[in-house]
Design a protein around this nucleic acid. Structure first.
Lengths: 118, 118
DNA sequence: TTGATACTTAGGCATATGCTTAACCAATCG
DNA sequence: CGATTGGTTAAGCATATGCCTAAGTATCAA
């Protein structure tokens, strides 16, 4: 899986802001121009642009300029990186809880069993 | 589902740092004391503590002090909030791509169909 | 009670973020 | 051409983050 740490940094950081999530939410319903994305946000256009740049740096958004209009769209694959990390954690702790369950059953039936957690 | 925006802010922000993810990774394999979590990190103990505080504020980690040792554990439920948000996005854009597919099929068979995207 | 261990708090500092306003280009439009 | 529209760049500023060192506090061990 390789570490991919910097990518996760950028990805989670990009998602850690309501304005940026709002942009992603809007874009998951279809492409939009920069000013269209900025309009509903409580900030200036340049500020919204900076958020867009963060999203692009995270690979979440792809843009393309035609004439004087820049059209933005989500990059669905980007989110799956975050998803995978979260899933990996879940697998990890579920396995642990299973082992704990086994251990408790062993206890019950009077065995000794090295259940050392560390 | 209600907005839950502040919670997502804290959650994603907490995950947007390699040291904090390392802590979560360690804890998904089982509970640990503060100093045990700090040891592998390239920083001082107080710095590690601050990361721990961020994780607690995000609801990702629960701690409990016994004697002079504070033991930390993950709160599996916390991650599911992030997961849900990501899933919701996916559902949204998959529906959209389906509609787009339908539209293209309609085109193909010569129909007109209002496929306006906006 | 003395000392070591395991955190905690406080203060300070460098850099990063988020935002603003004020220009500045580049395609349209009249 | 000259004015608009849509976007971009630049500079500046306030606050937030991330880290450190130094100085506590509270067990536990001898």
């Amino acid at each position: 899986m390789l570490n991919q740490s910097a990518g996760l940094d950028r990805l989670f950081h990009a998602l850690a802001d309501p304005a940026r999530r709002a942009i992603v939410e809007r874009l998951s319903r279809g492409p939009a121009a920069v000013s269209e994305l900025a309009r509903p946000l409580p900030m200036s256009l340049p500020a919204a642009m900076q958020h867009l740049e963060v999203l692009q740096a995270a690979g979440l958004v792809r843009t393309q300029k035609v004439g004087r209009v820049r059209t933005c769209a989500i990059e669905p694959k980007a989110l799956s990186l975050a998803e995978q990390w979260i899933n990996a954690r879940r697998v990890s702790w579920e396995r642990r809880l299973d082992r704990l369950g086994e251990y408790l059953k062993t206890m019950e039936s009077g065995g000794d069993g090295d259940g050392a957690d560390r």
